[in-house]
Design a protein around this nucleic acid. Structure first.
Lengths: 347, 347
DNA sequence: GCGCGCTGGGAAAACGTTATCCAAGACGCT
DNA sequence: AGCGTCTTGGATAACGTTTTCCCAGCGCGC
């Protein structure tokens, strides 16, 4: 841009020369090290750096040190509040450890996820956080695990959010318990006949929540009819599609819908209104996650509150304490049922 | 994790040795170059790379090439849908150019913004995208501009989103026209007496929208009383605080509120409901941005639709075509008024 | 049959750091 | 005085790539 002189950035060399010291001393002064350096020299170096507008080249540092001061983060879709809230926690956590975050989006494709892990590996990040993984049980699982294992063998730490039984550090969201508690609460509110909106089965988040919900109903001798489980996308549009499918089947025998996440629930809410079905008079609805929007829609959405930002921060914390352990760790984070107007007590 | 053998990652050297060729040939085969390489050798190299699970070290490439294949993105808060939607566009745009995105959050602090730009500069990114900047008119402006200029002199490209009159490429959101159009539309709907919720004045996005709104009202001989401009945070909580302040003043002389962005409007909506004020019966409300949630709240929010993901993608596109120009460029993206139930036609 | 341009492989020099040595001086002890 | 032992600055060798040379082989025109 502009036809300005394209000089190259000041290097540590320049700083050292300017300050009249050696490269080593300059490096030690600026980045600190175990070695002490004479205070006067140090000041000279700092001054020179400031004067030249020197900023250390992170790539060079990374290559000299063997790994970058970086966290790689994989999300399905950063525009989805579930991931953006989690990402904000990851970024905050990384920042505390003076790590920068590089982010990639899978757009909800397992193939893409594999590609991205490979690509991100190239950055030699200290930590690799995987969220929204959807390879479980697919034929890609082996390749992904191989890739991740190879990465860890080179000194990095993998943290997976909400995907159990993989030999990596895991921040487990207690989807089973959360959904079970929600089912209990809904039954307690007087609901008996349920439908569910869910995503593809390779998404453990989705299938776990469904399972937990079934477990909860089971405690009361209730069941979720397979015909009443609508399997669509894990998105707002998925919720819309599910409503359409459900209305085709009729809702006379349904008094409450469980959508496995809030964005689906909110899409459903909107679609139900458009199609003239009143929530909660004609049918109640509950979601999962407690994204910000959940309390802003009308009726406000009953859901399971998840501290998503904390989940992100915890992922980083877990990774950064990995070297103090000898085996993988799992942190489980639970959610709390939040009853709101979308599921009032039933007469 | 696990006490596995911590080997170091396969290097190009290893690949070359495995394939029985020189380093140069291996590099040329894998990364392509202007030079041709014998097809058989090339296959050997590719095979070896695959066998060893080789992934090029990006830091090494960056340092050899002089700059990283990276886009640095600064946002105020990734959990805010305004930024997360824009970020998704940036990531998508970057991806098309095979660039990875590293992201940092200012948490809405101008000081932090300056620090982050410095830090990000260290990564020698090809492009530096600044969104949500709030240094305009502050004493930090000069330092920031200096930093950015220095960055561009080393070959990078700065793109600023929605901050005019700075000597860098800019994706301008036409906040003035959008707000003016909104004002016209609201007057056309029958509203006459307005209040506004806005952010701090160093946020141009905020002050421009207010100004545009004023301009629009002016065309009808209407004005926005200074006492009725509530200056709070650019967030959901800001909207809540503004409602409280406004209600203290009374709303008998107000028939419509303009919140300079949707998240404030939605916070306000929620607070108004809590305080027993009916929207739109007692007071109408309009926002700006058209974030996803705007259509999901009740009443659905009148707003100005901005193609935020496109804005992000355009920022990258602009940066990547910078070398074909000799001077800075500005792309202006406009918004369309979307009338919804929060501002019905007034009797 | 001989120079000459072209092709494509390999050696080696960057790139900007950090870390490992080495040397020289200061200091304490006998 | 002689001799270890610290301390601290400076050379220099990594780190993993790309890229610039150099050079050998080969086809080709005269």
């Amino acid at each position: 841009m502009t036809e300005a002189t394209r000089t190259s950035a000041a290097t540590l060399h320049d700083v050292a020369r300017e300050a009249g010291v050696s490269l080593a001393t300059a490096s030690r002064s600026i980045n600190g090290s175990t070695r002490k350096v004479n205070e006067e020299l140090r000041q000279r170096v700092l001054l020179a750096a400031d004067k030249l507008g020197y900023v250390a080249n992170q790539s060079a540092q990374a290559i000299a040190k063997g790994s970058a001061s970086t966290v790689a983060l994989v999300v399905s879709d950063i525009a989805d509040p579930y991931f953006s809230t989690m990402a904000s926690g990851v970024i905050r956590g990384a920042e505390e450890a003076r790590l920068l975050v590089t982010m990639a989006m899978t757009e909800r494709s397992a193939e893409r996820e594999l590609e991205l892990v490979r690509a991100l590996r190239g950055g030699r990040p200290r930590v690799l956080v995987l969220t929204g993984s959807r390879f479980a049980g697919t034929e890609l699982e082996a390749s992904l695990v191989k890739e991740l294992t190879a990465y860890e063998e080179t000194g990095g730490t993998v943290v997976i959010v909400s995907q159990r039984s993989l030999p990596f550090d895991t921040v487990q969201i207690d989807n089973l318990a959360g959904a079970r508690d929600l089912a209990r609460a809904l039954v307690d509110q007087g609901y008996r006949r349920f439908a569910a909106f869910t995503g593809v089965s390779s998404l453990l988040t989705s299938s776990d929540r469904l399972q937990g919900f079934r477990d909860g109903l089971g405690e009361f001798g209730l069941a979720l009819d397979d015909d009443r489980v609508y399997r669509t996308d894990f998105t707002r549009d998925g919720g819309i599609a599910a409503v359409d499918a459900m209305l085709d089947d009729g809702i006379d025998d349904i008094d409450c819908v469980f959508a496995v996440n809030d964005v689906m629930a909110i899409g459903a809410l909107s679609r139900l209104r458009d199609r003239g079905v009143s929530v909660p008079d004609d049918i109640a609805i509950a979601g999962f996650d407690d994204i910000d929007t959940a309390r802003d829609v009308t009726p406000a959405l009953t859901t399971v509150r998840l501290p998503l930002a904390d989940v992100g921060a915890e992922a980083i914390h877990l990774a950064l304490t990995a070297d103090q352990r000898t085996s993988v760790a799992t942190v489980t984070i639970g959610g709390d049922v939040v009853l709101r107007a979308s599921t009032p007590r039933r007469a």
